[in-house]
Amino acid sequence: MNDPTLLALGATVLTGTLAVAGVQTYASGRAQRQALEDRLTADLGAGAGASRGRRFAGVDRRLRRTRLGRAIHLRLSATGLDLTAGEFFVYVVSVVVALWLIAAATLAPFFGPIAGVVAVWSAVVFLNWQRQKRIEAFIAQLPDVARILANATAAGLALRTSLAMAAEELEAPAGEELSHVAHQLTMGRSVDDTLGELAERLPSRELIVLVTTLVLANKAGGSVVNSLRNLTQTLEDRKETRREVRTMLSEVNATAFTVPLLGLGSLLLINSSNEGALARVTGSPVGQLLILISLGLYAVGFFVIRRLGKIEV
Rank of each mutant, 00 (worst) to 15 (best):
D193W: 14
P143N: 00
V117H: 00
S122G: 10
M248H: 09
Q288D: 03
W121A: 15
T79W: 00
L269N: 15
P113Y: 04
A146P: 08
A140F: 02
S294R: 06
F303Y: 15
S122I: 04
L44G: 07
E37D: 14
E197H: 02
N128M: 14
E206G: 10
V215C: 12
A21F: 12
R64D: 06
S272F: 14
P109S: 11
A299L: 06
T41F: 00
A48F: 06
L76G: 00
A146W: 01
E87F: 02
L36F: 11
I102L: 15
V13F: 12
L14I: 09
T79C: 00
H183T: 07
T153R: 06
A279W: 00
E136Y: 11
A167S: 10
G175Y: 09
V23P: 05
T84M: 02
A78G: 01
G49V: 08
R64G: 00
A182T: 07
L216A: 12
L264T: 06
L107V: 05
I311Y: 07
L18P: 07
Y26V: 12
V181I: 14
V215K: 12
A164E: 07
N230I: 07
L159W: 05
V209L: 11
L249Q: 05
L261V: 13
V20C: 12
N128T: 12
E87A: 04
N151A: 15
T241M: 09
L163C: 04
L269F: 14
Q32H: 12
L6I: 13
T213Y: 06
V145S: 11
R147I: 06
G196P: 00
G263P: 01
N271W: 02
T194N: 06
M165P: 03
G196M: 07
I102P: 10
A119F: 00
V20K: 12
A158R: 12
L36M: 12
G263E: 00
E244Y: 08
T153D: 03
R189G: 07
V224S: 02
W100H: 05
A154L: 08
L235E: 10
A220T: 15
H180G: 11
L235N: 05
H180C: 04
T186G: 14
D38A: 13
D82H: 11
V259H: 04
A154I: 03
L267K: 08
R62T: 11
D43M: 10
G29Q: 14
L81S: 10
Q233T: 15
A123H: 00
V13A: 08
S273E: 11
L44W: 08
F257P: 00
F138D: 01
T212W: 04
K310F: 12
A103P: 08
R67Q: 13
V252Q: 05
A8K: 10
A35P: 02
A21H: 03
